[in-house]
């Protein structure tokens, strides 16, 4: 991505500052609401861009798809991703003003309510209150507990409150966060927490990288840093359609997911099974309100009946049906380029999937990472 000159940077920073501060005095609304329009418009912008990248992947000749798809997708993602980092810096005022406040209000990728959902169900924490009362009482103190999770990792240790349950909650939050970040490759005990080496595949992931991936894996209702917002949109609007199993006769680029699942039989079940592997929903099933627009498969949450229900159907498939899965199969099994080259491409793709928030237990990520490592 091209560098932004200082004047433009300063101009946009002040424009955002002026807009947000003016808006909040004009409307007498809480500060946290200002900035949401910029944020939502950015989300739309990234969405349109990701869609146009997806449609740009189509070839006039279907037969070239397996060899050409990755050759076009990976550079497009690199460009998108590096641009996203630049925009993240350019609009850092929005990150600081709007995103951070939203996180403080428990609208971030890992909310205290996610942790509490576990906590109130735990038999080790019996309560005379009903679960709802308990939850309501604790929700009232959450804002204080949530300091600035991103800047320091977790700074809840500084809370000096006399309530023991707050301590317990803070501890639960820390444990949960470490556990989730571990699934994104962060090892808090690793001595080397610096940036990765130049190898195609990294063995260590920094805290910031893991958290960015965890953010990108969140549902669309969660407020995350602008760079991660772009990656999440890339997942929703470009990667997930490429991973999706088309229904019936394959139609390129236009696959609609039916979330209702009524009466669609195996096709819907297969799609939802795939969707389970995509988003980081299962670790965050806290019932955050998701926006209806464009959140695609992550909205399939709650379909727990699908977990065991459709496993046999996928085994009947003769080969991968998703566009990306076919391209990967070709890369790993058919492609005649030197192995080092194929490993490099597989590593780049694995990296892309992680960055946009496709979970490690997704079959394609597993396949790619074992190819790269093995």
């Amino acid at each position: 991505a091209p560098a932004i000159d200082m004047q433009l940077y300063a101009g946009i920073h002040s424009a955002c500052y002026n807009y947000i501060t003016t808006q909040s005095t004009d409307t007498h609304k809480p500060d946290a609401n200002s900035g949401s329009d910029i944020y939502n418009q950015l989300d739309k912008y990234f969405s349109e861009l990701a869609r146009s990248i997806l449609s740009g992947l189509d070839t006039p000749d279907n037969s070239a798809e397996e060899t050409e798809l990755l050759a076009r997708l990976l550079p497009a993602f690199q460009r998108f991703s590096s641009g996203a980092q630049t925009v993240n810096r350019l609009l850092n005022y929005v990150n600081r003003h709007y995103v951070r406040r939203a996180i403080d209000e428990d609208k971030g990728w890992l909310g205290m309510h996610d942790v509490m959902a576990d906590f109130v169900r735990s038999p080790s924490a019996p309560s005379p209150l009903s679960i709802e009362e308990e939850k309501a009482a604790r929700m009232a103190s959450i804002a204080k507990l949530l300091g600035s999770p991103r800047s320091t990792g977790i700074n809840l240790t500084t809370v000096t409150d006399d309530s023991p349950s707050r301590e317990t909650l803070a501890q639960k939050y820390r444990e949960r966060k470490v556990a989730v970040l571990a699934t994104w490759g962060y090892d808090p005990n690793a001595s080397d927490s610096g940036s990765s080496s130049g190898t195609a595949f990294r063995s260590t992931t920094t805290l910031a990288e893991a958290e960015a991936a965890a953010e990108a894996a969140s549902e669309s209702g969660r407020v995350i840093l602008i760079g991660s917002l772009a990656h999440r949109r890339f997942r929703f609007d470009c990667v997930e359609p490429l991973l999706a199993i088309p229904k019936g006769v394959k139609k390129k680029g236009k696959k609609k997911k039916k979330n209702g699942g009524q009466g669609q039989g195996t096709e819907v079940a297969e799609d939802e099974k795939l969707a389970e592997g995509l988003a980081g929903v299962s670790l965050q099933a806290g019932g955050a309100s998701s926006q209806a627009a464009g959140s695609s498969s992550s909205q399939a949450g709650g379909s727990s009946s699908q977990i065991g229900g459709s496993s046999t159907q996928q085994q009947d498939l003769p080969g991968p049906k998703g566009r990306l899965a076919r391209a990967v199969k070709h890369l790993l099994e058919v492609d005649e380029r030197p192995e080092t080259e194929r490993i490099r491409i597989a590593g780049e793709l694995a990296d892309m999937l992680r960055k946009v928030g496709v979970k490690i237990d997704h079959p394609l990520r597993k396949k790619l990472e074992s190819f790269v490592v093995g």
Binding site: A1, P2, C16, A76, R79
Partner: peptide, 19 residues
């Protein structure tokens, strides 16, 4: 207004994001 702000931001976004 928001439109004015966005009209200011958009060209920068395009410059950064578009190939």
């Amino acid at each position: 207004s928001f439109q004015t702000l966005w009209a200011y931001i958009l060209p920068a976004l395009d410059k950064i994001m578009l190939p």
